[in-house]
Computed example of a mutant assay.
Amino acid sequence: MLRTQFEEDLNKLHDKFYLMGKEVSKAINNSVKAFIDHDKSLAKQVIDRDDSINQKEQDLEKKSFEMIALQQPVTTDLRIIVTIMKASSDLERMGDHAVSIAKSTIRVKGNKRVLEIEQEISEMADEVTKMVDEVLIAYINTDEEKAIEIATSDRKINEYFKSIYRHSIRAMKENAETVVVGADYLQVAGYLERIGDYVTNVCEWIVYIKTGKISELEMKNVTDD
C-alpha cells in the first residue's frame, strides 16, 4: 500500500515537472518572438507568466521534501526526487532568462535593426527550444543516451553565440546607429547561451538518476550567474 502511494506521488512529481518544463519552453519561444517582432504585449505576457513558473518550482520542492521526510526513499527513488528538485531549479532559471529577453523587448525603442542578426537569434532560439523540449522527453523516459546526445548539441548553441557576437560587433563598428540594438543582440544571445547551459545541467541530472554519478557533460563557456 505504502509503495503504491509512493509511486503515485512520484508520478505526480514527474507530471508537474514536465508541465513546468513545457511552460518554460513556451516562455523562451515567446520571449524571442516578442524580441524579433518588437511585440511588447507578448513580452509582457512572458513577464507576467513567470510567477506561475516560480510557483511550480516551489510546489515541486515542497512536495519533494515531504516525500523525503515522510517516506524515506533510498537509492534510485531518492536520486529521482533529488533530480526533480535540482532540475526544476535549472528550469526556473531558464524561465528567468526568458523574462530577461522579454524585458529587452520592452526597452528597445525603434532603433535601427540588423535583420540578418535577428534571423540568427531566431535560429539560435529554435535550437535552444528544441533542446528544452528534447530534454523533457529524455527526462520522462530516463534516457541516459539521449541526455548525453542533447548535451553535445550545446556546442551548436555556443557557435551561434560566437557568430552573433562577431556580427553584432561588426555592425556596431560599421554603423553607430546600431550600437544600442547591437548591445541588445549580444545580451539576448547571452541569455540563450545560458539557457543551453542549464539544459546541459538537466542532462547531467538524467545521467545521475541512472548512474548515481554527477558527470560534467559539456564544459561551460559562460560562468553561471
Rank of each mutant, 00 (worst) to 15 (best):
Met1Trp: 12
Met172Glu: 02
Ser163Ala: 14
Leu60Ser: 02
Arg170Thr: 14
Asp39Met: 11
Thr75Glu: 08
Glu193Gln: 11
Glu159Ile: 09
Glu193Gly: 09
Arg170Trp: 03
Glu57Gly: 01
Ala43Gln: 05
Asn201Tyr: 04
Lys146Pro: 04
Asn11Glu: 10
Leu78Ser: 12
Asp143Pro: 00
Val24Asp: 00
Asp154Trp: 00
Asp15Glu: 14
Val179Lys: 07
Arg79Ala: 09
Glu57Phe: 06
Asp133Tyr: 02
Ile157His: 04
Thr76Arg: 05
Asp50Cys: 04
Ser122His: 15
Leu186Met: 15
Tyr208Ile: 08
Glu218Val: 11
Glu120Phe: 07
Ile169Arg: 10
Lys103Ala: 12
Ile106Met: 07
Thr152Gly: 05
Asp59Gln: 10
Asn11Asp: 10
Asn30Met: 13
Val180His: 04
Arg194Phe: 13
Gln55Thr: 12
Lys112Thr: 14
Met219Lys: 15
Ile84His: 00
Tyr191Leu: 12
Glu116Asp: 14
Thr200Ala: 11
Ser41Ile: 12
Val199Trp: 02
Tyr198Arg: 13
Ile106Gly: 00
Val202Phe: 00
Glu123Ala: 13
Ile169Gly: 05
Ala102Pro: 03
Glu118Lys: 09
Ile164Ser: 04
Glu23Val: 03
Asn175Arg: 08
Leu91Lys: 00
Ile84Ala: 04
Lys130Ser: 15
Lys22Ala: 04
Gln71Cys: 11
Ala176Leu: 11
Asp59Phe: 06
Asp9Ser: 15
Val179Asn: 08
Met94Glu: 01
Ile214Phe: 14
Ile195Met: 07
Thr76Pro: 01
Asp143Glu: 08
Glu23Leu: 08
Val82Asn: 09
Glu149Thr: 02
Ala138Pro: 03
Phe65Lys: 09
Asp126Met: 13
Asp90Gln: 05
Gly95Asn: 04
Lys220Gln: 14
Arg3Glu: 13
Lys156Phe: 07
Asp59Thr: 05
Lys63Asn: 08
Ile101Arg: 02
Ala151Met: 09
Lys146Met: 10
Gln5Ser: 14
Ser168Arg: 03
Leu186Thr: 05
Leu192Arg: 01
Tyr198Ser: 01
Phe65Asp: 08
Ile169Phe: 15
Gln71Tyr: 09
Asp37Arg: 14
Thr200Phe: 02
Lys33Pro: 02
Ala189Asp: 06
Gln45Pro: 02
Thr4Gln: 15
Ser104Arg: 04
Phe161Pro: 03
Glu66Arg: 12
His97Asn: 11
Ala34Gly: 08
Val74Asp: 07
Asp51Arg: 07
Ser168Glu: 05
Met67His: 01
Ser122Leu: 12
Met94Leu: 10
Arg49His: 14
Tyr198Lys: 13
Val181Thr: 13
Ile148Thr: 09
Leu115Ala: 15
Lys210Asp: 12
Lys26Ile: 03
